[in-house]
C-alpha cells in the first residue's frame, strides 16, 4: 500500500502549482483553471485522509467541494464573458480601471 505521505505531498505539490499559476499567469481563464487545480488538490487531500482513517466525512466533503466548484465555474465564466463583451480582452494586466 502506498503510504499516506505520498498522497499528501503530491496534493501539496498540485496546490502549489495552482497557487503559482494564479500568481504568474495573466489570462483570466487560465487563472481560473489554476484555481480549479487548487480545489482538486484539496479533494485529493480529503480522500487520502478519509481512506487512511476509515472515516467517511472527508469523502462527503469532496462532494460539496465539487458542487461548489461547478457553481463557481458557471458564475465565473459568465463574469468573464460579460467583461469580454465590454472590453474585448481577458488579460488581467489590462483590466486596470480601478486602482488606489
Amino acid at each position: 500500500m502506498i503510504p499516506l505521505n505520498y498522497y499528501l505531498l503530491f496534493a501539496a505539490f498540485l496546490f502549489s502549482v495552482g497557487v503559482v499559476g494564479v500568481l504568474i499567469r495573466r489570462n483570466a481563464i487560465i487563472v481560473f483553471m489554476c484555481i480549479e487545480l487548487m480545489l482538486n488538490s484539496v479533494n485529493l487531500t480529503f480522500i487520502a485522509f478519509s481512506a487512511f482513517m476509515g472515516n467517511a466525512i472527508g469523502q462527503m466533503f469532496v462532494f460539496f467541494v465539487m458542487t461548489v466548484a461547478a457553481a463557481e465555474a458557471a458564475v465565473g465564466l459568465a463574469i468573464i464573458i460579460a467583461l469580454f463583451r465590454n472590453k474585448k480582452t481577458i488579460n488581467i494586466d489590462q483590466i486596470n480601471l480601478l486602482k488606489w
Binding site: V22, F32, E72, I79, I80, A82, I95, L97
Partner: peptide, 11 residues
C-alpha cells in the same frame, strides 16, 4: 467598472 469589480472579486 462593474465587470472589472466582479472579475476581481471572483478571482
Amino acid at each position: 467598472i462593474a465587470n472589472e469589480a466582479s472579475l476581481k472579486y471572483f478571482l
